[in-house]
């Protein structure tokens, strides 16, 4: 699994490539933690190459929702395939975090 992050205009884009499980979720945790520390307020997560996510990955996203709320950080996930999205859906997490089809829609959410 590989995670990269870069600033694109006013947004901070985290790109995930591979599978997030109990072994690799720490890398996602580090990427989000770094974005918060840098003071980023508009975070996009490109999930186009995210092939798999387990509860460990879901847990990372969930554990930062309070921080996002408190610090006025907006986050949106985009380009997520249907199988991966179904994992968020099973637990109703799609109601707690924005998951949209395109980057343009994600940008509108964090504007």
């Amino acid at each position: 699994m590989n995670i990269s992050a870069n600033k694109q205009d006013k947004t901070y884009v985290i790109t995930i490539d591979g599978e997030i499980d109990a072994s690799s979720s720490i890398e996602l945790d580090t990427a989000i933690s770094e974005a918060i520390k840098k003071g980023e307020r508009k975070i996009l997560v490109d999930c186009a190459k995210l092939n798999y996510i387990s509860s460990a990955g879901l847990g990372v996203f969930m554990s930062y929702l309070e921080d996002f709320e408190e610090q006025g950080i907006k986050i949106a996930l985009f380009h997520m395939n249907d199988k991966v999205k179904s994992v968020f859906e099973i637990l109703g997490l799609v109601d707690l975090i924005d998951i949209v089809p395109t980057k343009e829609e994600a940008e509108k959410i964090v504007e």
């Binding site: 979720s25 945790d29 387990s54 509860s55 460990a56 879901l58 847990g59 990372v60 969930m62 554990s63 930062y64 929702l65 309070e66 921080d67 994992v87 099973i90 637990l91 707690l96």
Partner: peptide
């Protein structure tokens, strides 16, 4: 509750 407590675990058994 997991969100409020900022917990990373607790979702696996539910899944």
């Amino acid at each position: 509750h997991l969100v409020k407590d900022r917990r990373k675990g607790g979702l696996g058994i539910s899944l």
